[in-house]
Design a binder for these strands. Structure first.
Length: 436
RNA sequence: GCGACCAUAGCUCAGUUGGUUAGAGCACUAGAUUGUGAUUCUAGGGGUCGCGGGUUCGAAUCCCGUUGGUCGCCCCA
């Protein structure tokens, strides 16, 4: 056992696992670019106050925080939202709207490890600033679906549950709740899926008993799965706000339907995402088979840029975590061997042939091909074995007899066939083979 | 912060009521094979049995502690 180990909750990425992680990142980045999002980055270390301002003092217990040598209270970032709000807020008047940004970076949380959860993890974050209408939600949910589909997942593998804190507030208001009671009830609704009826105890302990009818109306609301059901129940109410909000729902679901994404999205008002800063639509993506944590989550947070010192600026965003994502892809067999293989492996007879091979190897590498060769002298059998194990598509054989005639042999590693080509045409032959 | 289970080679694991120098398969390296990838055979490297203490003539084995891991609870931005 080595004397030094990695810190608890921190992963190490040997080439095979880094290849898988890069595969995720590559797909996410490609999806974001397809949707017109621009990539940004920012410091991994931030002022502790940035997170306290957003989440309250109690957040400190879950942070990697410390005092730096200049006496500053700092923390490794546990999330991207405060940072991106600061970036956007600082230049809000100079940035073209809508502002569509994304990032793929590491985060740190001082938590106990669990399945799909560690102390250092990566997230894909995407946000739209400057659009108050539900078109921003359409664009982001579309991107979220694409990020997962791009990895090979289908509507049979995952779905997005769409909910709305505004809808809840209007509904609860119509049932006679005041603002404080409504917030308390949202906390209970957040737990309803796991605790069932016991979740209401969270509310009744703080705000007193519920009328049986009221509780029934809330449970009925929680059971809504489709837009027609929602329309039917909202239609019974005379709340103007409630029916106005229904128009936003029609726009979001209608837009996603027009994008061909209806199979990926369900109405599910059981999602409220405990965070107090969400102000409207909220959504989470889940594995359909359901034994994993949420794959992704997000929502609208129209007040946060202003709260963190910027101008008032509407915003919607979501994040996908890499750990649960990788578990799901693993379960579905969507993470094949992704280690980069060489295009060409040079098989070299001896010391003199090596110098000839070096010239060609350098030529091919400069042209952008992935080329490998043995660093030591080895028998031909061993060299071919290495070429096959590395996954090379072509072996180029530098033998004394061939070089004397000014040729090399190109071996198709899959077909086990060889052709001789003049060395002067070697690069063209490689190009033709690999592009065929 | 709380709880359960686990810890022997890089990996998966065996190891007898506590008893000689701790084993196997896979993987890795080399050779059989000095111009062609398989198979096979042979050999080799790799362990303070997670760490510390205790019981004992003797501990991988039993006891206590500790560290780490896995999984749950709390939380989940």
């Amino acid at each position: 056992m080595a004397s030094f180990q990695s810190l608890p909750g921190f992963r190490e990425f040997y080439p095979e696992s880094l290849a898988r992680r890069n595969h995720l990142f590559r797909c996410w980045r490609q999806s974001a670019h397809a949707y017109g999002f621009l990539e940004y980055d920012a410091p991994v270390l931030e002022s502790l106050d940035l997170y306290k301002a957003k989440s309250g003092d109690e957040i400190e217990g879950q942070l990697f925080s410390f005092t730096d040598k200049g006496g500053r209270e700092v923390a490794l970032r546990p999330e991207m939202t405060p940072t991106v709000c600061r970036l956007v807020g600082a230049k809000a008047n100079a940035l073209k709207r809508p502002i569509k940004w994304f990032s793929i970076v590491d985060f740190f949380r001082y938590e106990r490890m669990q399945k799909g959860r560690g102390r250092c993890f990566a997230q894909f974050n995407a946000d739209i600033f400057g659009e108050a209408g539900p078109e921003a939600e359409i664009e982001l949910i579309g991107l979220l679906v694409q990020c997962l589909r791009g990895l090979g997942l289908t509507a049979d593998d995952f779905y997005v549950r769409l909910s709305d804190r505004n809808l809840w507030f209007y509904y609860l208001e119509a049932l006679g709740f005041d603002a404080d009671q409504a917030r308390g009830m949202l906390g209970a609704i957040d737990k309803f899926e796991r605790l069932g009826d016991d979740a209401f105890k969270i509310y009744t302990d703080a705000h007193g008993e519920l009328a049986a009818d009221t509780k029934g109306r809330i449970v009925e609301f929680l059971g809504i799965k489709t837009l027609p059901q929602l329309e039917a129940i909202v239609g019974q109410s005379d709340s103007v706000e409630l029916s106005a909000r229904l128009d936003d729902w029609r726009r979001v679901l209608g837009g996603l339907n027009a994008m061909g994404l209806a199979a990926f999205v369900t109405v599910d008002l059981g999602v409220v995402r405990g965070l107090a800063y969400y102000t409207g639509f909220v959504f989470e993506a889940f594995d359909r088979k359901g034994d994993l944590r949420a794959l992704a989550g997000g929502g609208r947070y129209d007040d946060l840029v202003g709260k963190l010192g910027g101008p008032a600026l509407p915003a919607v965003g979501f994040a996908i975590g890499d750990m649960t994502m990788e578990l799901l892809l693993e379960q579905r067999g969507l993470l094949p061997n992704l280690v980069v293989a060489p295009d060409v492996y040079a098989v070299i007879a001896g010391a003199e042939e090596r110098l000839a091979a070096f010239a060609d190897i350098n030529l091919l590498r400069a042209a952008g091909y992935r080329v490998d060769y043995p660093l030591r002298e080895l028998g031909f059998g061993k060299q071919f074995k290495h070429a096959a194990e590395l996954g090379a598509r072509i072996a180029i054989i530098y033998g004394g007899e061939e070089l004397a005639r000014g040729v090399v042999k190109l071996r198709d590693m899959n077909k086990r066939e060889e052709v001789e080509v003049p060395r002067s045409q070697m690069a063209e032959a490689v190009r033709d083979f690999l592009s065929a």
